[in-house]
Write a protein that binds this DNA or RNA. Structure first.
Length: 415
RNA sequence: GCCGGGAUGGGGUAGGGGUAUCCUAAGGGACUGUGGAUCCCUCGACCCGGGUUCGAAUCCCGGUCCCGGCCCCA
């Protein structure tokens, strides 16, 4: 056993108990997204490597699973889905009425050091709302993320911000924006200050930037933001978004220090954090972005988010509903009647029969081990007299019955 | 890529240079038409490679994997 091949680093097996829980959660998320009118899409597990390097730069190469196929094409396992969905939309969805409302639930792959809440194969549930640059679009997507996380039974705090305001403040440092945004995203105020100093930023701007990125609270902090950054369409826009979020009674904080590192986020951005996950406490990230130009197309205003499905699954307490398993057990010599009976019962119930050649005693023992509610006993008497014995495995009571009677409902055998 | 802690039957563990412990799960029997209790039996382990040693699960070196953190986080 020692030389057995084990699963690759950072991957996981899911046993039935866990798989059932994940399935319940997955269906809840699908259900909420569909209530908002979103429809599921799926893209290939691997894409041309270029799709991802164009979007995120060559630096992601070290965190991506990439390979050459037999024809020498450079391919990569998808590290996320926004780029792939954007590619799909540009490639296939020209004629569809706008806006597009898509959701996805897919596995993604990143070559990173595994730790709590971080795996090399992980699942993301996400949505993209494509075609609108109205605040209503941001509000819809934020509310959808909120409702999904609520429905999943997770305690989280939602932070909403806007990257446009910061970008305007830092517009004199165009070449360094990405680097500065990264420091802001990390809440590395000291690093940010040093970085700005080394760029010879005016002292006043440094101070403003530091104060601004620390702004966190209710929508009223937008007034403060205006004092610091001056009035702007971005602040007005964010104020409008907040008004609608308040109208929908969402619980959130305005956080002007959200930067989301990447260049393609252009407007409202949001993140959600949960307790109990160690260092990886972010369970949701999203915002509005412009990505199409990277693929040589006219830009389409889009808003989306991705949820860390595995992290939410770890926090979630859901359990699959019991289906009421039935075991058909047989006396030696009556196995054939048992499998026939089982098949008929399967028109309505989840039913198992013995495939181990066990005696009846052990079949019953196994039936209670696997959690069966009822056992159906098939033997000489039953076959000759044309009935079935139904036994309640919790109470031990049993009845003479018929297949039809059992199929009509098993509540009658629950006392 | 970096730092720390780990790895003993399927799961959980004790031991820490010489015989590998216990619990549990699983399979069977006591009981060939009635389960859960009990008793008995069976199955099954020192992560991998090298070194030190008469002898290594134990000590040393290297690796792999796991856990936590750093970096990163599209």
């Amino acid at each position: 056993m020692n030389n057995m091949i084990s699963k690759p680093r950072g991957t996981r097996d899911f046993l039935p108990d866990e798989m059932e829980k994940r399935k319940v959660l997955e269906n809840i998320m699908r259900d909420v997204a569909e209530r908002y009118g979103y429809r599921e899409v799926s893209t290939p597990t691997f894409e041309h490597l270029e799709l991802f390097t164009k979007k995120s730069g060559e630096s992601i190469l070290k965190e991506i699973y990439h390979f050459k196929d037999k024809s020498g094409r450079d391919l990569a396992l998808r590290p996320e889905l926004t780029a792939a969905v954007t590619r799909m939309i540009l490639e296939e969805c020209h004629a569809m009425p706008r806006p597009l409302r898509f959701y996805y639930f897919s596995n993604c792959f990143r070559y990173e050091r595994p730790q709590k809440g971080r795996y090399r194969e992980f699942w993301q549930f996400g949505v993209e709302l494509v075609g609108s640059s109205m605040p209503q679009a941001d509000v819809e997507v934020i509310a959808l993320a909120y409702d999904i996380m609520k429905s999943a039974g997770v305690d989280f705090s939602l932070h909403v911000g806007h990257v446009g305001i910061l970008r305007d403040m830092l517009k004199d440092f165009k070449g360094e924006t990405a680097q500065l945004m990264r420091l802001i995203d990390k809440k590395d105020h000291k690093g940010l200050q040093e970085s700005l100093e080394s760029l010879n930023a005016p002292e006043e701007l440094i101070e403003k930037t530091l104060t601004f990125t620390k702004l966190l609270g209710g929508p009223e902090i937008l007034d403060e933001a205006e004092t610091i950054a001056g009035s702007s369409e971005h602040i007005d826009y964010l104020r409008g978004v907040c008004e609608m979020l308040d109208l929908l009674k969402l619980d959130y904080s305005v956080d002007l220090g959200i930067a989301r590192g990447l260049d393609y986020y252009t407007g409202v951005v949001f993140e959600a954090y949960a307790e109990g996950l160690g260092a990886q406490n972010q369970i949701c990230g999203g915002g509005s972005y412009r990505l199409a130009h990277l693929f040589g197309s006219r830009d389409i205003p889009s808003t989306g988010f991705a949820l860390g499905f595995d992290r939410i699954a770890e926090l979630s307490q859901f359990k699959k509903e019991e289906r009421g398993l039935i075991a058909v057990v047989s006396v030696k010599g009556y196995e054939k009647e048992a499998i026939k009976t089982a098949r008929e019962l399967r028109t309505r119930y989840q039913v198992v029969t013995d495939v181990m050649g066990r005696n009846m005693k052990n079949q019953l023992s196994n039936a209670s081990d696997i959690g069966a509610k009822l056992a159906v006993i098939i033997g000489k008497e039953e076959v000759e007299q044309g009935f079935i014995t139904v036994k309640n495995l919790e109470t031990g009571k049993q009845w003479k019955s018929s297949i039809d009677e059992l199929i009509s409902g098993y509540e009658q055998f629950l006392e």
